[in-house]
Amino acid sequence: MSSWLGAHTSEADLLAVRTGLAEPLAQLRADTGRECPGRTATIIEARMAQMIAGEGGLEPFGELDPGEQVVVALAEQFMLDAHGVDGAQMARLGEHFSPAEQIAIMFQLAFTDGFTKLRRVMGLPVATTTTTTVVAPSPPSSSQPSSSRSSSSQPSSKGDL
């Protein structure tokens, strides 16, 4: 991920060049601090810092296709505040994924969200190797709706989910 300056930078460096960003950033911080419940404001602040510094990006995955972009946006909103996922966002998901795939995506989000919280609360370290074997469910039945995405964009090794 490149920063808003196209390279790794600091907020001070950014604002020195893009002075017009100072007021919107301050306003965003004020709004989130005043209106966002729980840790949301802190998370948004952390995400802003990542964007400014050019960190936390998705470069290892290459250029995202439109469907993947929808999923990333949905994942971020789901994690930040699921109440903010609206009908338009779900409709965009439906433009790229079949109903079965949408179900799988939402389960994936729910599990990762829930189990990340579980790991955090229980103080568990991030495992670098898998010590248990997870058996993937059976392949989809032939009666399942076909994907609306091209086969080349489908993951091949993630099982049914």
Partner: peptide, 26 residues
């Protein structure tokens, strides 16, 4: 945001999950 996958039944968690039978069973 998804229709029921079971004809004649309204959309709810179970009928929407039925779009993905394998996952629903598991």
């Amino acid at each position: 945001h998804l229709p029921s996958a079971i004809e004649g039944q309204p959309a709810h968690f179970g009928t929407i999950l039925a779009h993905h039978p394998g996952l629903a069973t598991s």
